[in-house]
């Protein structure tokens, strides 16, 4: 994909789904995220790019409070989902994570059958009244994960027996099954081969019609291919945030330019 089409990418302005204001994150003594302000739109793919250790994954994990599971991690500032502070005391992180789904770097299907992997979330949250409804949810999610045709005949087979790309799409289907509003993806293709990567990227583009997707990636090509908005992180700072076409063709900050041209990394 070249720069010309990048510039022509249609970006309809959507309503703000997540708004982060003055977010600071500390791991013990180290200051991992510094005063980050960002607004993530609904039905849009937002890419976080930046060199290793710049804090993009840490920030992503703040958005569904996965950092709560790390004892030494402290988050300051406001993160609003649909205008509500997710770090408010009244918010249950467990319910939040059902609304803000997550896909991880390495495919991590549970050692259960394909069906049970997808049915895991709906069962926990009581989304299905009976077996028929659950079957329906599983099928719908696997279709949205673009893996239904490959697994429909072996739903009882273990999820760990699939190939890497299939496993990752299964994990996406699993995340979609709880009807989230936002999907967070932490380098979802870094453990996949190019063909599986292409399939997952295609899937991400389809998911945009229903969800707000935030993806962390090390591959600038991938960010350019799948996202409409891009945020560049460097040393814990959000350096630049804007339209993907804008960032990749005409960055404002010299650090962004250095990174996308490969001078820092």
């Amino acid at each position: 994909m070249n720069d010309m089409t990048l510039m022509e990418k249609t970006v309809d302005t959507q309503k703000i789904k997540i708004a982060a204001k003055d977010v600071n994150v500390y791991y013990g003594d180290s200051h991992a995220i510094k005063d980050v302000n960002v607004e993530i739109e609904d039905k849009t793919v937002t890419a976080f790019i930046g060199p290793s250790g710049c804090g993009k994954s840490t920030f992503l994990r703040c958005l569904n409070r996965m950092n709560d599971t790390i004892d030494i991690c402290k988050v300051k500032g406001d993160i609003l989902l649909d205008g509500e502070d997710i770090y408010d005391k009244r918010v249950d992180p467990v319910q939040l994570r059902a609304k803000v789904g997550m896909v991880f770097q390495k495919p991590n299907p549970f050692p259960k059958s394909i069906y049970d992997n997808v049915a895991y979330g709906p069962r926990i949250h009581g989304l299905a009244k009976n077996k028929a409804e659950l079957d329906e949810i599983v099928e719908k999610s696997l279709r949205r994960g673009a893996i239904w045709d490959e697994v429909k005949d072996r739903l009882d087979a273990p999820g760990t027996g699939l190939s890497g790309g299939q496993q990752q799409r299964l994990c996406i289907a699993r995340a979609v099954a709880t009807e989230p509003e936002v999907l967070l993806m932490d380098e979802p293709c870094s453990a996949l081969d190019p063909i599986a990567t292409a399939q997952v990227e295609e899937l991400i583009d389809e998911l945009r019609s229903r969800y707000s997707v935030v993806i962390v990636t090390h591959s600038m090509q991938q960010a350019a291919r799948v996202s409409q908005k891009t945020a560049f992180f460097h040393l814990g700072n959000l350096v630049e945030f804007g339209l993907t076409g804008q960032i990749f063709t005409n960055p404002e900050d010299p650090r962004t330019e250095s990174y996308i041209t490969g001078r820092i990394g």
């Binding site: 569904n64 467990v94 319910q95 991880f104 895991y120 709880t178």
Partner: peptide
């Protein structure tokens, strides 16, 4: 693996679940 726990917690499961 920790990835198993992350996967489950990321779906909104509680710790005991």
């Amino acid at each position: 693996p920790q990835a198993m726990r992350d996967g489950s917690l990321g779906l909104g499961a509680t710790k005991s679940e």
